[in-house]
Design a binder for these strands. Sequence first.
DNA 1: CAGCGAATAT
DNA 2: CATATTCGCT
Length: 415
Amino acid sequence: MQIHHISNIEVSVDQTAYAMNTGEVITVESSEFDTLLSAGVSILLVDDDSICLTILSKMLLKFGYKVITAKRGTDALSIAREREDELDLVLAETHLPDMDKYELLETMGEMSTLPVVIMSADDSENDMLGGLFKGAALYLVKPITMNDIKNLWQFAFMKKTERTVAAEDSSCISSDHDTENQIFTNTGRQSHQNGKRKEPKEMEEDNDDISVLKKPKLIWTNGLHNRFLQAIRVLGIDGKVFQGAHPKKILQHMNVPGLKKENISSHLQKYRLALKREQRIEKTMNRDYAESHLASYNSSTVDIQGDLYQNPEMQSLTSFQLEFGSHEPENVSSCMSMPFLGYTNSLNHLGPNCNDSSSCKYGQLTLLGNQLDSTYPRSSFTGISVSDSVTSNGKLAEFRPMVDSNGEDFLKGNK
DNA sequence: CAGCGAATAT
DNA sequence: CATATTCGCT
């Protein structure tokens, strides 16, 4: 088998630009944050084409990922089999010489828990939905951008779960000041082909002594919330008049393994409160300075992200992140703050293209989306990443939590 | 039994 | 104090 351990690659980034995409001036000084988040994440990169392989490796390395490459599907599988523990994520091209389209994806799904991110030049809904349905954590359409790469780390945590927890779950009475190398506890699962909604089995050999008594605290991450929003958009915004958005249906639609009805209800309750608040705010604003404020509110999503951002309303059809609080309390919340910031997130290219397709399973999504978008709070979009602002400004903006991003407004209580 | 609002817990 | 869970009512 041909495995290349890449530690140093000699390809100039300039060529990256022409080959991969606009890639221009990826000034991405790989801000400290990016490298911090992706640091130590090991990625198995699978691509038949040497050029792509090299370029992608380069990009990955730039963000601090560890990269192992394979050119053939079989190689990828054996690597994954032997060294699954060292790996965090598989990034694979769909078209491989020795396998057909989603064979690697499927096989990988059967034999390991590694999240698989698919990349392909095929951008039809059929292809994308197919890939996602077969269990891909994310479907990236080539050309791959630096942003895509930058956000990859988020999907790596879908597998790295209990290992880290179990490793440190032993009594840590020692009041150690842990460094930041701690990893949060995400429980993620790839959807199987027959993937139904629930997964009765939870932990394999974990301490379940209190698992029944203690309910794991569910933390609604942006990703999870986005999924929630997506579900709501499809089903209908309010359960009262329409028959859409009952928690049960939402749960069904979200299709998240560990998620309980109660969680949805709770979140829905909070969500509705937030809605009310916003409506009141808008009303009070209407009385006084009607248009100026409103205008700024509505356009804000567009303003920040500028022209190059596509369709913020459409959120990822992709995967989700389920996060439970670990038994050790504090480390979670501290870690939590990081992912929020960087969550520009897998905007996969599903949204914009969907309107022309009647074949799209989520065709109703576009329909409902139009009539609803005035009602629901701004899509929770927080992070406009640093590199985004680079392109708009021309120079690097300082990293700061988006002030005007309304992503979080839903979370904070405005009165 | 499910949904929703309010109370309670973390 | 915010947010998740539990309770009680419909």
